[in-house]
Design a protein around this nucleic acid. Sequence first.
RNA 1: GCCGGAGUGGCGGAAUGGUAGACGCGCACGACUCAAAAUCGUGUCUCGCAAGGGGUGAGAGUUCAAGUCUCUCCUCCGGCACCA
Length: 986
Amino acid sequence: MNEKYDHKEIEKKWQEKWQEDNLYKTPDEVAGKNNFYALVEFPYPSGNLHIGHWYAFAVPDIFVRAKRMQGFNVMFPIGFDAFGLPAENAAIKNKVDPRKWTYENIAYMEKQLQSMGNSFDWSRKVITADPEYYKWTQWLFLKLYEKGLAYKKKASVNWCPSCNTVLANEQVKDGKCERCDSEVIQKDLEQWFFKITDYAERLLSDMENLDWPEEIKTAQRNWIGKSEGTSFKFEIRNPKSETKEEIEVFTTRADTLFGVTYLVLAPEHPWLAQEILNPKSEIRNKSEIQNYINQTKNKTEIERTDAKKDKTGVEIKGIKVVNPANGEEVPVFVADYVLGNYGTGAVMAVPAHDDRDFEFAKKYDLPIKNVIAPYFCDPANPFRPNKEIIFRKVVHSIIINPKNNKVLCLEWKNFPWNTFVIGGVEGEETNVEAALREIKEETGYKNLKFIKNLAGPFVNEFYAAHKDINRIAQVDLLLFELENEEKETISDEEDSKHSLVWVDKKELKNFIRGIDEKEYEIEAFERGEEVCFTGEGVLVNSPGFELIKSEEAREKIAEKFGEKVTKYKLRDWLLSRQRYWGCPIPVVYGPDGKAHPIPEEHLPWLLPEDIKDFAPKGESPIATSKELKERVEKIFGKGWTPECDTMDTFVDSSWYFIAYCISANLKSEISISKQFQNSEIQNKLKSWMPVSRYSGGAEHTNMHLLYSRFFHKALFDLGLVNEVEPFSQRMNRGLILGPDGQKMSKSKGNVVDPDEQVEKVGSDTVKMYLAFIGPYNETGQYPWDLGGVVGIRRFLERVWRLKSEILNSKSETNSKSEIQNSKLENLLHKTIKKVTEDIQNYKFNTAISAMMILLNQLESEKAQVGKSEFEIFLKLLAPFAPHMTEEIWHKFGHTKSIHLEEWPKYDESKIKEENANIVVQINGKIRAQFEAPVGISESDAKEKAETMPEVQKWLENKEIKKVIFVPNKIINFVLKQTVGIDKLIS
RNA sequence: GCCGGAGUGGCGGAAUGGUAGACGCGCACGACUCAAAAUCGUGUCUCGCAAGGGGUGAGAGUUCAAGUCUCUCCUCCGGCACCA
């Protein structure tokens, strides 16, 4: 008799039973079991579970269940990241209390989550908007404040005019608000910050030992943006001032110091602000500068930071600064291409070797001084020791005949090279003079027009065999045009050396040979203009450092004229938000305006509830609360005022994984300080932290992970936690797209509703389909494919049917547990191994495929399948289809849950095959194959292969050059090629 | 521009340097059926009647053997981006 696989009934039944039995409640310690902390990012209570939530929670549940069966005490908690903007926006739009909106959503989503049948430990649930939770957030804030890690300062901040609030740098995308897409502007405000920059180095170095995907580590490294460089001080030449003033610049290219032709200050540079106010200042164009600064302030972030826009700036007239390397005076500019909040807010401009400076210098016609020369060194002719080193300045001339666009080149008679016209610079000659002289001597042409410098200088080092010397040549590449073909006769000596060849422009690449730098030169010629060389090379025009390589010169110049320093792109974490629905910053202001922490006994410092209008008007709606004002005055006295800003929700989520470990303590009446003093909390944290495996979305690669790591390190320094890093393993998951391959969105109408799918095919199918769609530990994008869902459902139905058949037919032969078919047994053990390993590696797709293969085999040989074999299969399937397997398990007469069973073990000896399929290759091509006992020797395999007719026909009349034998896999005959070709032709 | 990641059938995707396309979807044919659905079976990279040949974004290279390793290039996705 075949009963229907009624997923609705089965799933409901077991969900209720599991809850009733508290099956997944996780004690802190279980004797004989190791703890495992499996964490998934907690959801924001948006009001509806979408398919992404399923992907985030249901799929890792497979891993969690398997881990439990494998004997671990696994904590798999869940909660809600409940503060944040959408609640407030809903409040403004629909005139509902954000609290009510949020908690109703939570209640609804909890029900939806239950339908997932996940093995969450609900008893550890946390909600960040609960006073019992944010009391702890506030306490932790105060701890950081005590340590000097939370501070307030006036800062130019990213302001979203639509959300009416401050945004962290991380929340600005392309100069626009991440949430509402409005253009972000800059605004000066007093704001709270966390000093995450103090931890930059540790955030970087502690990552080394973490078992995280390399791409996440790299992303964090980029975000932290460490760069090692040098700071130089440029003295301000201010004849009337008695005090010595300096401007400090930061550079990673100390080797270019001699190429500085001006200095640039960011509009925010503090010296500038101060100097403009200084009546004695030498600056002659103060109002022009002030205008420029004001303009910058009015720019949006997107206008300011668009690298493609034209660079603008204003010279600060009346002052110069002195290059510490050579005492040269250079002008100073203010320009907004220099950022105020990185480095020192001032840069030394080296237009010859920095693209941005180059662009600016071109626009404002500032001098460009080459100090780094590209460096070529012919590996075929390296310097020879003990030979004289001769340095020469050289010019290479490209002479073009405008009539036919051909280039004059030399073909050398006694040397294997073809060149442009080349020659050394003598005495006091200029490059052009030297070139013209050489051209006349070598070619006879005397009427040439100098067009321009194409490139240079660059440096070439080689051993010149014809002169038996080591030669260093510093080369400039010049362009000339032939005015007419008038010629002088050239000396016999010159004539005997080389012949003149006019080469077509396009042929230059093929004609010029024997010089390393030819590609560089031809490229420069084709480009037709000098460009900025930002690479490394050797120094020129840098007295005392001539011809030293960039890398070495950086060290030497830094040591002599500056100081080595390290800078980070990472900026302090701005946490103030001018919003209602967040954790109140637990601070009050005294009559003098100074900030005071709220003493612990007043925590939680509650969000006021007497707010009527949540629409922000430049300050937090909390500022309108009467209740809060009265509360402050009552506790602290007249004249005291509350802090009205709330915290960035990233603060709430920076410690929620700790909250899960100690969720019972959150409710305690005992003060937090006291709780931390007794060992209870420490012990719980020791049981669970660090998180064993954390899975989440790629969108949190930077901010959330970095903030949490910072928070954890700060708490570690405070002695509150025992670990430096919170997450020992992290895996990012991919994204589920709509059936059309597009991101799901209501406007596109391609949203897949998980509730609907669960209703139709059941939670087990939906979950398993999501696991089957692709590897879980890669950040791919997978379209939801209804056909694919059907495939999984079919698979489960087949399991269901097979169960019935086994139940019916095996009822009398229950005792039979030995598999009689060794092939089946072999497959069973292989599958156990494969599924076990794949689950561990989050490769659920191939684990499922292995189970499908096993099921196919079980079905085709069902007469031989005993109950116990089928039960092993069921256990493998249990984490994937928890409801259905539980149902079958009980139908098989068990009374305990399948999820409390032990994970099947495989026997390595049973995986071993008796026979191997040996592939016979001729020259790497497969020609035949045969079955042979495992371990067959090379000689036996060779003998066997050679007797096969389909092999013999290839070996006929051929000489075997070599035989490659891969045990149990391949025997490859390598034949003499020539014979093979003859055969092919005939 | 820089830094990551990835390019394999009609589709999602498999392949410790060793039989490319497992598994699933789709499709085709067949069985069952009055019929359909469901189910089951067979086939399904491509050219070729076959023997064979070609095939993992393109091109070179290493190797007895390359989807896999090396180099050059192209495309897509993600992140960062005037960071000196």
